[in-house]
């Protein structure tokens, strides 16, 4: 798939951005999650209202590279608040940054929809506690709007 150049300035400085959300586990956990640790900020727990953001540091950005999907996002660090609103249903949750992610570039161009409402590219990952406030964990991936919280 062709990749486009990043936008300038970062889209999320101008207002809410739309993208995909998934969920990830962190902290003490069972199963395949038992080895993941407490995230880049050292505070991440699956039961907390937290999220991963693709631009928490230069090292983080070098891994996630949302710019390779044509998305520029603002540098925001541990503890920064975002509000994530489901485009299906309108439920929202405010969470703080606790990790680096998702790895946007590996799913570049991906699009998820509910009905006719769609969003492109993975821009945020929520903990299970946070994701389950706005959607079922069994949905796995949803289109959302993300704003500074």
């Amino acid at each position: 798939m062709a990749r486009s150049k990043s936008t300038d300035p970062p889209a999320d400085l101008l207002g809410p951005v739309q993208g995909e959300v998934s969920w990830f586990c962190c902290g003490t956990a069972w199963g395949p999650c038992s080895t993941v640790g407490k995230g880049a900020c050292g505070t991440c727990n699956s039961g907390n209202l937290q999220h991963a953001w693709p631009n928490t540091s230069d090292a983080c950005w070098a891994i996630t590279r949302p710019d390779s999907c044509g998305v520029s996002l603002t540098r925001r660090t541990c503890g920064f608040r975002h509000r994530t609103t489901a485009l299906c249903g309108g439920a929202s949750v405010v969470t703080t940054i606790a990790d680096c992610g998702p790895q946007t570039d590996l799913f570049c161009g991906e699009r998820s929809c509910c009905g006719a409402t769609c969003a492109n590219n993975r821009l945020i990952d929520l903990t299970p506690a946070a994701y389950s406030q706005i959607a079922s964990l069994s949905s796995g991936l949803r289109p959302v709007e993300i704003a500074a919280g």
Partner: peptide, 13 residues
């Protein structure tokens, strides 16, 4: 619920 805090209405284990 305070962002970043444990959600009392959620459990794992």
């Amino acid at each position: 619920i305070e962002p970043g805090a444990p959600d009392p209405n959620f459990a794992e284990g």
